[in-house]
Amino acid sequence: MAEILLRATDIVAGYVKDLPILKKVNIEVKKASLTLIIGPNGAGKSTFIKAIAGVVPVTSGQISLSGQNITGIRPDQMAQHSIAYVPQSDNIFRALTIRQNLELVLRKSKNGPARIAEMFTRFPPLAGKQAEKAGTLSGGQRQMLAVAMALAVDPLLILMDEPSAGLSPKAAQEVLQLARDLTSQGVTILLVEQNVKQAMRLADHCYILAEGRNQHDADASILLDDPIVGEIYLGGKRTNVS
């Protein structure tokens, strides 16, 4: 049984006090796994990721990473806690060059130049354009840069919010495959996706959220053929599965 890296217990969170979007969410993420969160619009998937990243305040509950309490960290301290977060859209700085984007996230790192070189070896399309403004990249390459920026700080856990949104089917598949490949190198990934079928084929474990609560969870391979998934996505009102 693999070790649990991230554990979130009874999370209540939201932008406005007394109006929680997450009413009670529990998840566990195994080390070096690809864990997927799906659910209908407004289920609180993105909010949950943002609560872990410290972007949305957590009202109650606890989040721990390798047994260390990380509830309510400041978003700018994520890297110190070995977490990286790839937001859904606008996840690169268009006005900066590709190299500057990477230098920016690594500005406190001791071996910045080495890490940047490593990222360019890993992502050759970026290396060729390192002096160009990031705003000139194609959609797929932007996601690649965003992932590179997350990976550059050498995190244990990467939080990804719909990385395939707005991409062509081919580019979407590439980005999801990239996430899968990272886990085989020991990185843990928590992924929110709308591209359910595609993501589920690659994921290890899958959580379904609805209306700010856990609905169901199981191995992704099992859920892939489960009628429940379709039911929730068609808007069926299923209150409690367990």
């Binding site: 990243a53 994520m78 900066l96 700080v153």
Partner: peptide, 21 residues
Amino acid sequence: TFGYALRAVAENPSLAEVSGI
């Protein structure tokens, strides 16, 4: 990199924050 940070905050404050600024 301080200069980049400044430009980053001007372009997208919330992304700058999650990028460690």
